[in-house]
């Protein structure tokens, strides 16, 4: 099968009156970096949770490596998750243990490797993200960018086949953004991963992605290679890429009309 993740006609809502997704279709090809873009609050993080099986779709299917996520038993789901890594926006590092122990955590939990082997594996992972020297620091001693790189090292510790990034660049300085952007690409190519990046950092993601989906209002509003997205004629996609403050994606949150809201109270 050519696609690592396939999403068919997926609908999802946290509560019945406000759907997050209305029947979207997304295909994530194996070995590529696919970016999912969209304005804040369009459920990009929710999409990753659906792929990881932390949320259940209301309708439709999520297939990961040929298995339908929502139909798996919890032990099958845990087995599938060993093939996935997810980099959380906040990193999700364990705050009471050192960088080394954080990266060693999945190895200790899932393997019976001897201590010397764990040490080599952890240091290799830390070397990939350039933080071999930071092994003894505690998470609160790390800068935001370093914490995210440690979390990345931890996420790839078990050699996943699929790596998901939740807003990897948000809140980072320009140098860190450059570092992380490049890491996503090099890790994908060197480790033979499939990567899904959820982001709204247009410029960086256009530069490293193989394929891009733009979602807004619970629907896919545009997709294609970076070049075709850049030239997209769709006004919604154009607004997002260029960053116009108002347009088809409205500036205002849905509300009563001005007259009803102001005049009625006078």
């Amino acid at each position: 099968m050519n696609n690592f993740v396939e999403i068919h006609q997926l609908s999802f809502s946290y509560n019945s009156n406000k759907p997050v997704f209305k029947g979207i279709n997304i295909e994530i090809p194996r070995g590529k970096v696919t970016t999912i873009m969209g304005p804040s609050g369009t459920g990009k993080t929710t999409l990753l949770r659906l792929i990881g099986g932390q949320n259940q779709p209301t309708q439709g299917q999520v297939l990961v490596d040929g298995q339908e996520v929502s139909s798996l038993s919890s032990s099958e789901l845990y087995r599938l998750r060993k093939k996935m890594g997810l980099l959380f926006q906040s990193g999700g590092l364990f705050t009471h243990i050192s960088v080394f122990e954080n990266v060693a955590f999945p190895l200790r939990e899932h393997t019976k490797l001897p201590e010397s082997m764990i040490r080599s594996l952890v240091l290799m992972r830390l070397e990939m993200v350039g933080l071999r020297g930071a092994r003894d620091l505690l998470p609160h001693e790390l800068s935001g960018g370093m914490a995210r790189r440690v979390a990345l090292a931890r996420a790839i510790a078990l050699d996943p086949k699929l790596m998901m990034y939740d807003e990897p660049l948000t809140g980072q300085d320009p140098i860190t953004r450059g570092v992380l952007t490049q890491l996503i690409r090099t890790l994908n190519d060197n480790l033979g991963l499939t990567s899904i990046v959820v982001s709204h950092d247009v410029r960086e993601m256009l530069s490293i992605s193989d394929y891009i989906y733009v979602i807004s209002g619970g629907e896919v509003i545009g997709q294609g290679t970076p070049a075709s997205i850049n030239k997209s004629a769709s006004p919604q996609v154009k607004q997002f890429i260029e960053g116009f403050p108002d347009g088809p994606v409205p500036f205002h949150y849905p509300a009563l009309s001005l007259q009803e809201d102001f005049i009625a109270y006078v």
Binding site: Q54, R81, L86, L93, F94, F105
Partner: peptide, 11 residues
Amino acid sequence: EQLSSMEMMAV
């Protein structure tokens, strides 16, 4: 998100 990340590490 430490609990969520634990879940995603299949723990």
